[in-house]
Simulated assay, not measured.
Amino acid sequence: MPEQPLFTIGYEGATPDRLIESLREAGVTTLVDVRELANSRRPGFAKRALSQSLEAAGIGYRHMRALGTPAEGRAAVRAGRYGEMRRIFGARLAGTEAQAALGDLAASARAGRVCLLCLERDPAQCHRTLVAEAVASHGGFAIVHLSAAGALPA
């Protein structure tokens, strides 16, 4: 049986319209927001505005706060300390609430075409890749990184 794609996307450098266009091109049915705090200074990317735009485009929206990076992990990313972010987020991911959310996410991804959303354009520098890898480690998923702001970095 072929693997189900599990998409990820970052909105850094993108517009809401371009994000939705990328999701449509990939056939995504549900966007799962894995930011701990689903707000943004960028117009159109806060939880309410984003969920409304997605709904109008026929794409579902879910916020899974338990799969977000805690404040100290976000601070590590801003400082360029990606190894530290991975350690901090790894501890979060091992927790009971995050494990339950991962199970829920895996079930959703088996039922439809799901895409994980966070800010960072480069998936190698974002915790959404760690979330996707945790889901894919149970088998049956192929991780596909989408871009809403042009080509992904090499």
Rank of each mutant, 00 (worst) to 15 (best):
H63F: 08
S22T: 14
G60W: 05
G60D: 06
R35V: 10
A38T: 04
R62Y: 03
T30W: 01
L54G: 10
S53R: 13
E21C: 11
T29W: 00
R24P: 01
A56C: 02
A75E: 15
R74M: 14
L19Q: 11
Q52H: 04
R48P: 00
P70S: 13
D17M: 08
G27T: 07
L67I: 05
T30V: 14
A57V: 03
A49Q: 13
E21I: 10
T29D: 15
E72T: 15
R65M: 14
P43G: 00
K47E: 14
L67D: 05
V32G: 01
A56L: 10
G27I: 08
R62G: 00
Q52W: 02
R41I: 06
A49N: 06
H63W: 14
N39Y: 11
I20M: 05
I59Q: 06
L37W: 05
R62H: 09
G68D: 09
M64A: 15
A66Y: 01
P16C: 11
A46R: 04
V28I: 05
V32W: 02
H63M: 07
T29F: 00
I59H: 08
G68W: 12
A49L: 08
A71M: 10
A76T: 11
E55W: 09
E72I: 14
R65N: 09
D33R: 01
T15Q: 09
G80D: 08
T30Y: 00
S51W: 06
A56S: 13
A57W: 04
V34S: 03
R42E: 07
R81M: 12
E21Y: 07
E25Q: 13
M64H: 08
D17V: 13
L19R: 08
T30L: 15
F45L: 03
R78L: 14
D33T: 02
G44K: 03
A26M: 02
G27L: 09
I59S: 07
R24S: 12
S22M: 06
R42L: 14
G73K: 05
A66T: 00
Q52M: 04
R65L: 13
F45G: 02
E55F: 10
T29A: 13
H63V: 09
G73V: 12
R62D: 05
G68L: 11
F45C: 04
E36L: 14
E25V: 11
G13I: 11
S51N: 04
G13T: 13
P43I: 01
I59A: 07
G73A: 12
V77Y: 06
G58D: 12
A79C: 09
A38H: 03
T29G: 15
A57F: 03
